[in-house]
Design a protein around this nucleic acid. Structure first.
Lengths: 201, 201
DNA sequence: GTCGCTAGTAAGTAATAAGTTACTTACTAG
DNA sequence: CTAGTAAGTAACTTATTACTTACTAGCGAC
């Protein structure tokens, strides 16, 4: 007869992560408390600690969730593309689409990278970014080999600009408070980015 | 005989702002407390409230300080440039230089734009960004007129990519924890950005 | 000199945070 | 049907936060 029946730790962990991501879409992740999460789940605050030892463990699990799901989208976009240039475009739009589907995700990442020390959570974020850059560099190198983009493109700079372009779009959407315009702005910025690679539009 | 003599509200306000910016270079601005600021100034915590009514007033003053000083650097860079294209390069490097000189400044801005509601502080950040974009768009338009860059460049997208490029560099430096490599990375990214505008290097 | 104003101090306050604890309830294996 | 286990609750602890207040001391104007 209880409104909120007992559930397994596994499903509750997933629920806590999803709730954190959802709440982060509108508020600053740093000021979301365990009480906030618990209330949103219609559970008492203490119940959370049956499933995660500390709040930091929650944050780490959230970052891991983002990693898995974003990377899945990016790899899917890459693999469905016939060549490296189309892959770059698809990854760009997939990332923007992910940020639009889960607006809390980039806020959480930005919040974590503010942290000072080399906490496990921040190290995980570093790892995500590093692997992302590597994937981009590889794809760029493949595109160069296939003569799809300029041969003298510095792939490290090109990877940095790729990420910056997306981060800029996300920051802009955070400022305006809506992800509505992001997708069309993304098309314009992507066009310009491709021009930097020597692609004619 | 007191180590820390009495000072005017004006100079103390400046000191509080400078301390906040300095402390933000290493820690997350959101978790810098009034006690932290006071300790760094070798003053009691209550003393801060002689000079600012609330902590939010401090944050607002800090954002205004950043606005003034960053815009000063940008306009100086622009005005010392013989043409619009050189102005764009100079503004890019001036912004990167500012972020290197005051690493706390971008962290503070990122922290503020996480905020949910339309607080006075966030509105001020919005205003800064908006004016920045306008300045960039104007400069880009001038560069187009002078045939220094491609005529078919969409200046809104180009302004967005300019900002994103810089924000990407800053985020990367926040992750690595040092601003050392930022300046050389900036050169590579700027080169690529200019290529997007149709400038041959 | 001294008087008034203001910066500063020290010790508060109320609110809120994460995490703990003692106890209860529900499911399941034997 | 009963005993063990794991999820949940409610109330608590301890620490920390922004902000306040009663009082003190230094500086400039007269």
């Amino acid at each position: 007869m209880s409104i909120n029946p007992r559930q397994s730790t596994e499903s509750r962990q997933a629920e806590i992560i999803a709730t954190m991501v959802r709440l982060s879409a509108e508020r600053s992740p740093a000021e979301i408390t365990t009480t906030d999460i618990a209330k949103a789940m219609k559970v008492t605050q203490g119940a959370l600690f049956r499933h995660f030892a500390t709040k930091e463990a929650i944050r780490l699990a959230v970052v891991e969730w983002i990693d898995e799901h974003l990377m899945f989208e990016l790899l899917a976009a890459k693999e469905r593309s016939p060549d490296a240039l189309i892959a770059l475009k698809a990854m760009f739009m997939a990332h923007v689409g992910f940020a639009r589907a889960y607006p809390g995700a980039p806020r959480l990442i930005f919040g974590e990278l503010q942290q000072a020390a080399a906490s496990p959570v921040k190290m995980r974020v570093q790892q995500i970014m590093q692997r992302y850059r590597q994937t981009l560099s590889q794809t760029l190198a493949t595109a160069i080999e296939a003569k799809l983009i300029r041969a003298d493109v510095d792939s490290a700079s090109a990877a940095a600009l790729f990420l910056g372009a997306i981060q800029g779009l996300i920051i802009q959407s955070m400022l305006s408070g809506s992800t509505e315009q992001m997708e069309q702005q993304a098309v314009g910025v992507l066009d310009l980015y491709l021009a930097a690679l020597g692609v004619k539009s």
